[in-house]
Design a binder for these strands. Structure first.
Length: 983
DNA sequence: AGCTAATCCTA
DNA sequence: GTAGGATTAGCTA
């Protein structure tokens, strides 16, 4: 470096923060990655490189470097441990931009300098000093006052955002002291942001006055007694030592051990294609164009660079209660040799395990207790293992244990192909399918009871993390064998917390998605259809390949997915809303509910008679016999043969025979359609409920055990199946009779507790609607209030029809209202429905804001969130297909409402059992069913009052303390012998 | 036997 | 207009 050379030193770290706060937020269009600061940075760099002379800097750089902070661990921490101690974590949207800005720097072909243990400011000071000593000039691109001490005749600063040069006069103007006294001034005033102590009562003005009077800090401290103002004198004397520490803290180090000499900072030619590639990846279109033009690069032919954004590693859900805050209990930290940071770790592992094919031939079959015990002690040694059961049935309540598999991970094994070993332990395989004698066990299996005892030791060991896929199944199977799994992770639930809305979370789909591997289909092992055999008849070698693979894949999935929980800030959702619910649901399923066979059988008979009578009448009216249950045949009869009006076609071109169509016809006094509607209702009740339910009564327990799915819905709701007990009829008197068959045991009652209007309450809370909040606080009729607001009708003496319309609109809002849907629901013209919606938005403008904000979030981030931080993704929200897009928008509007309500009841369910147990009611009141906003318990008669009180209390306070809702939650509860009367 | 469409039950 | 599951018919393999 020589005279007239000019070094530009860009304070990269400072720039990031300033640009982030000063510039409007900007996200990358394609994926919502926040890039505002990166954009500002690139624009500024480009300007400095191409036209610095035209700015108030007025010179063109010959040398340039971008300087960053390495970490917060600097020598200043050693001098003063509290230095920068109370810094809040950077804003979430800023975190990924740190690494992007470094990438940007490299794309610009500029040296990117950081030194461990030093702040950017020290490195800048060092290089500025070096430049001056070499006879050149330096300009620091920053406006940070901490750097002003460096300003001198050959060192300037430049505020890129205000296009303002900062020299000696500017420093004096701003601070009242020349640059060389800035250190003393900062020492006196301190800095609350960096937690640098100062003298109380002394700010920049006083400090400047004092320094003017005494010359410098040393002289001031020596002659402090002579200060006239009493308070000021005392404060300075009292804080003498601290001020000296502060001076050390604010003094920049001008002799950092820099690696690159000045000559290495010489500005090079821009690499056009490289820079364009990066800018394209960032989707900075106008800058891309300008750069391409200036460098002669062909933008159209350049591929966007692959840019990895690193998100921060702190998991922080919105859940605030410190008492609840749990992290990984007893779980060994995941080995971290591949990369640092959970996002990078997840990516590295995905790459690592997707690249290594699964080797089924490496799986072991464990045939003796000693080997099993070796594996179990290895699992204890590692602190984690994957686990999977093989059984005779998909129904966990009927399943017999046939064997189980384990997979272990060796974190120190650098060869990924050898890092995982998996084995299958056959326990109850039969000797052979064709063995007419039957019942004989195959040779070479571990004794069932001994193996189970060994397994129990492992599964109940809090010190070993058990990893499974869809653990609720295995948990229930093991529960029935007297084993309670402790300390577990479920890859299905992890995937659900991470990627709800991005496809299903079954093992095959996850394996395909993350490992690029297709596991052996079950039917290849056990056959399908009539040839299907239960797993105990599967050949042990085949079973080993299948079962060990399941454990192997599960373990790999865990390695890939688990780090993402923290990286993507949904660890709290998983740990608080998913994982703890699993044992709760297993117990509910195990308990089941009593169903009275006689009642169902009698109902079935009545329905059969009624259906038969209706069939006769229908054939009579139609003039021929046909299959009434066939929409195709029915449509042909109604609209073809009989030529009835109002025929609509379904998607596939068939005549629609949906109930609305039939009702329209019935309204025209055509008798056949109403008979058909009645017949359908009757046969529906019979086939789906009275006929099917008895088939679900468990042979041993004599109760019906539904199965809840934790990861079937996108919103966080549960789903019930086999049988679905969440759609038992309630709306019609006839349908309700089915509920009378759900009964409590003798000496017990069924207790039903349900949230009143929970979704509208959630809406009032999230959209912050004053009238709704007030109405709920006052406990008034919410639909009547809405009607009154909209139509100006007083609540007293309001016609039923007016309230009905308001109610439909309220529900419509929750469902992401459309004029089309509302018109359908109310049977009015679309234009009239539009007017209603318009009027609603006028009366409740906050609702419209909520809807627009929610859609915008779905577009920007790709997901929406519940009040507890659950995310629901809408990858198709930007579809160019209007139908698809609109559907996604409505779903996105509904999801936070439905999902928050689902989260509330999940929280209640997780808390209720421990609370009951603490009250001594653990045996007397048992939770059996969940129906979205309702919980059903079986309670001993004399415990009903106490249990009701406790349950209502837990449910009403379930959002607390994580979220303090702006409206009260209300729970209504009733106990009776059967579900109909209790509801 | 396995799949989709249509229908209807729930919150 | 949101979120599900079960049943039936009727098609394809």
């Amino acid at each position: 470096m020589k005279k007239d050379d000019h070094l530009f030193l860009i304070d990269g770290s400072g720039f990031i923060f300033r640009a982030f706060h000063a510039l409007p937020p900007l996200t990358r269009k394609s994926d919502g990655l926040p890039v505002g600061a990166v954009s500002g940075f690139c624009n500024m760099l480009w300007k400095l490189l191409t036209s610095a002379r035209d700015t108030s800097v007025g010179v063109t750089p010959t040398h340039l470097a971008v300087i960053f902070d390495f970490s917060s661990q600097t020598f200043r921490k050693k001098i003063y441990p509290d230095y920068k101690a109370h810094r809040p974590p950077p804003p979430e949207d800023l975190v990924p931009q740190f690494s992007l800005i470094r990438e940007a720097t490299r794309a610009f072909n500029l040296p990117c300098i950081e030194i461990e243990g030093y702040e950017a400011d020290d490195i800048i000071a060092t290089y500025a000093q070096m430049a001056v000593e070499a006879g050149g000039d330096a300009t620091i691109i920053s406006s940070d006052k901490d750097l002003m001490q460096l300003v001198g005749s050959n060192v300037h600063m430049y505020d890129g955002m205000k296009d303002r040069q900062i020299g000696v006069p500017e420093v004096i103007e701003k601070w009242g002291v020349p640059p060389e006294k800035m250190i003393d001034l900062q020492a006196l005033t301190g800095d609350s942001v960096d937690n640098v102590p100062g003298v109380p009562g002394i700010g920049p003005k006083t400090a400047a006055t004092l320094l003017e009077e005494f010359g410098d800090l040393d002289n001031l401290l020596e002659n402090a007694e002579t200060i006239k103002q009493k308070k000021r004198r005392e404060n300075i004397i009292a804080n003498r030592e601290l001020v000296l520490v502060s001076r050390k803290l604010v003094t920049l180090k001008r002799d950092c051990p820099v690696e690159l000499p000045l000559d290495a900072l010489v500005l090079e030619e821009q690499d056009g294609p490289k820079l364009v590639s990066f800018l394209k990846a960032m989707e900075f279109n106008s800058l891309t164009r300008r750069v391409a033009e200036a460098t002669g690069a062909e933008a159209a032919e350049i591929e966007p660079a692959s840019v990895n954004a690193e998100w921060g590693e702190k998991a922080h859900g919105p859940d605030l209660d410190p008492g609840e805050a749990v992290s990984s209990e007893g779980e060994k930290p995941a080995p971290d040799s591949e990369a640092s940071g959970p996002a990078a770790l997840a990516a590295a592992r995905a790459a690592r395990f997707a690249a290594v094919p699964i080797d089924r031939s490496s799986y072991e079959t464990i045939r003796d207790l000693e080997t099993l015990e070796d594996w179990i002690s290895a699992a204890r040694d590692k602190g984690l293992c994957a686990f999977d059961t093989e059984t005779t049935s998909l129904d966990a309540m009927q399943a017999e244990l046939v064997g189980f598999s384990l997979a272990l991970y060796d974190e120190d094994q650098s060869d990924a192909a050898k890092a995982i070993r998996a084995a299958y332990v056959p326990l109850a395989h039969k000797a052979g399918q064709d063995d007419l004698l039957g019942g004989g066990l195959a040779d070479g299996q571990v004794d069932f009871d001994k193996a189970l005892a060994a397994l129990k030791g492992l599964l109940e060991d809090e010190g070993v993390l058990k990893i499974a896929q869809n653990l609720k199944y295995d948990y229930l199977v093991m529960l029935r064998h007297g084993v309670t799994v402790k300390n577990f992770d479920d890859t299905m639930l992890i995937s659900y917390a991470l990627d709800s809305g991005m496809g299903n979370h079954g093992m095959d789909a996850l394996s395909e998605r993350w490992l690029g591997h297709q596991p052996i289909p079950y039917k290849e092992v056990a056959g399908s259809g009539r040839n299907m055999v239960t797993f105990d008849y599967v050949d042990i070698d085949k079973a080993t390949a299948y079962a060990a693979e399941d454990a192997d894949v599960t373990l790999r999935l865990w390695l890939v997915l688990k780090p993402r929980l923290a990286a993507e800030h949904v660890a709290t959702v998983y740990e608080r809303l998913e994982r703890p619910l699993l044992p709760v649901l297993s117990r509910m399923e195990e308990r089941g509910i009593s169903v009275d066979r006689q009642i169902l059988s009698r109902l079935s008979g009545e329905l059969a008679q009624k259906a038969a009578r209706l069939e006769d009448e229908i054939y009579e009216l139609a003039g021929e016999k046909f299959n009434i249950g066939s929409p195709k045949q029915l449509g042909d009869i109604l609209f073809g043969k009989m030529g009835l009006p109002g025929g609509k076609k379904t998607k596939s071109g068939q005549w629609s025979t949906a109930v609305q169509v039939l009702d329209d016809l019935a309204a025209q006094d055509i008798p056949l359609p109403s008979k058909i509607v009645e017949w359908r209702q009757t046969t529906k009740l019979k086939s789906t409920y009275t006929d099917a339910l008895p088939g679900y009564i468990h042979p041993q327990t004599k109760r019906v055990h539904t199965s809840y799915s934790l990861a079937a819905t996108t919103t966080g709701r549960l789903a019930s199946s086999e049988p679905n007990l969440q759609n038992i009829p309630v709306r019609t008197a006839e349908g309700r009779k089915i509920r009378t068959a759900f009964i409590a045991n003798p000496g017990h009652k069924l207790l039903s507790a349900d949230y009143s209007q929970i979704e509208l309450r959630v809406l009032a809370h999230v959209a912050d609607i004053a009238q709704l909040k007030q109405a709920f606080a006052d406990g008034i009729d919410i639909h009547a209030m809405t009607a009154s607001e909209m139509f100006g009708v007083p609540v007293e003496g309001m016609p039923g029809e007016v309230r009905r319309r308001a109610k439909a609109i309220n529900f419509g809002i929750i469902y992401g209202i459309s004029a089309f849907g509302l018109a359908n629901q109310l049977g009015i013209e679309r234009s009239e429905a539009s007017d209603y919606i318009k009027r609603y938005f006028e009366r409740f403008p906050g609702i419209n804001d909520y809807m627009e904000d929610t859609k915008a979030q779905a577009r920007d981030k790709g997901y929406v969130e519940t009040i507890f931080g659950r995310r629901i993704h809408y990858p198709e929200i930007k579809s160019s297909n209007h139908q698809v897009r609109s559907f996604n928008e409505r779903a996105a509007i509904n999801a936070p409402i439905q999902g928050s309500a689902a989260d509330v009841i999940r929280r209640a369910m997780i808390r209720i059992e421990p609370e009951l147990a603490a009250a001594g009611l653990g045996e007397k009141a048992q939770m059996l069913l969940q129906v979205h906003d309702e919980l059903i318990f079986e309670v001993e008669d004399e415990a009903v009052d106490e249990a009701t009180k406790l349950i209502v209390d837990v449910m009403e306070n379930a959002a607390m303390p994580a979220v303090s809702m702006a409206v009260p939650l209300q729970v209504d509860a009733r106990a009776a012998h059967n579900w109909d009367e209790a509801h």
